[in-house]
Simulated scan of single mutants.
Amino acid sequence: MEKSPNKINLLLYPISLIYGVGVWLRNKFFDWGLLEERSFNAPIISIGNITVGGTGKTPHTEYLIRLLQKRYKVAVLSRGYKRKSKGFVLAGDDTDVSKIGDEPYQMKKKFPNVHVAVDSDRCHGIEMLFSNFTTADTEVILLDDAYQHRYVKPGINILLVDYNRMLCDDALLPAGRMRERERNKSRANMVIITKCPEDITPFEINVVRKKMDLFNYQELYLTTLSYGKLYSLAHEDGEYPLTKIKSDVHILVVTGIASAYKLIDDLKEYSDNIHHISFGDHHDFSKEDIKSIRDQFEQLPDRKRMIITTEKDAAKLSSHPALDDYLKQYIYVLPIEVKFLSDQEKMFNYNINEYVRKNPRNSSLS
């Protein structure tokens, strides 16, 4: 079983100190005005983290899409991590995953009416969204994974923190997983503690509040992972919930995400036989990887076996040339969503909607 990633490599602390000086200096350049933060006359919401991967950025971005798309024309702007393209790319219905990256590809497939674009230069990406004829109707922009991209000053800055790896228990890269020091959480307007136990107690919530030690202007929310219904990668044969999985079925879980420990633990509630193949985050599956998946799958008992993967991994697996129809028919995709705890959903939704309503897009950029 994969453990919660709380290890800190003490031997790498000297390198972390050097890295920390560089990050501190960069942030000071922004604070002193030597590097420019640009504001735009439009509602812009940033979703990001301080730690490297695994906090649930995509499910939380998708939550915001669902919340806002009924009333506004939403655009999502990402850098398109590990994409095989350069500059600004606007996703179309048939855009290949290699051109925009797995997470933007996933969001475009799930929300075809939402504009999805990638650009490592977020300021340029915003300008392109507002000036491009196809996306000129954009009313609100969601910046995916942009907490460290300080060239854009968002109206709301949302910081995600993994419940299982609180900032006070972590360290700077490479000794730990933090991109910058804990004190830089002060830039956030909202802090969301993700992957919380669904049965978290009031006492545990108070412990979280004390550990985070937020300022009065910062709002604290708690969310947990919620799973949608499984659907087949090979064909449209409907959806069915995890509860229909029989306990004696052998499940091969294939993941290429930063942190799969909670997913694996949750799936053990439905099957006594969980087998896990773990790849690195945003993994590009090779022909050898597909063969390895097939070999391990063939070792499982016939007629009582299946493969479960995430939507992010399915984005790359679905069109992989080495994945044949035989293996594909056994692969099921598990959507991951988020659910707010402690009756906080209404307050979060209200604050987001009020910000967008009070800050409508103007025709000119500042």
Rank of each mutant, 00 (worst) to 15 (best):
N273R: 14
D266S: 15
R305G: 10
P112I: 07
Y270R: 04
Y81K: 03
Y63L: 00
C196T: 15
L252K: 10
T223M: 05
I100V: 15
I15G: 02
I192H: 06
D265T: 12
K153Y: 03
S366V: 04
C168G: 01
P174R: 04
N351V: 04
Y221K: 12
E182M: 14
S78N: 11
C123Q: 14
P154M: 01
D302T: 09
Q296Y: 09
L17M: 06
I251G: 11
D145V: 04
K70T: 11
R294D: 08
V356L: 05
S259Y: 01
T61E: 09
S232M: 07
T138L: 05
D137H: 04
L172Q: 08
I331Y: 06
R209G: 03
K110W: 00
E311R: 09
I336Y: 01
Y227M: 01
W32F: 13
F215H: 13
D137N: 13
K312V: 04
E311C: 11
L341F: 06
W32Y: 14
S120C: 02
M107D: 06
T224Q: 10
E345F: 01
E345V: 03
T58D: 05
M190G: 01
A314I: 07
Y105S: 08
D119P: 02
D313M: 03
T310V: 13
E354M: 15
E139I: 00
G256D: 10
F130M: 14
A258I: 06
A234P: 00
W24G: 09
L214V: 12
N27R: 13
D162Y: 02
P112H: 07
S271D: 08
V74W: 06
A315K: 01
Q218P: 12
I251C: 14
C196V: 14
L142H: 02
N189H: 14
H115P: 01
K339Q: 15
D93L: 10
A136P: 00
K28W: 15
F285Y: 15
N353I: 11
D102M: 09
D313N: 01
I264Q: 15
S85Y: 04
S186D: 10
A91H: 09
L129M: 13
I100E: 09
D265Q: 13
F285D: 09
T135D: 01
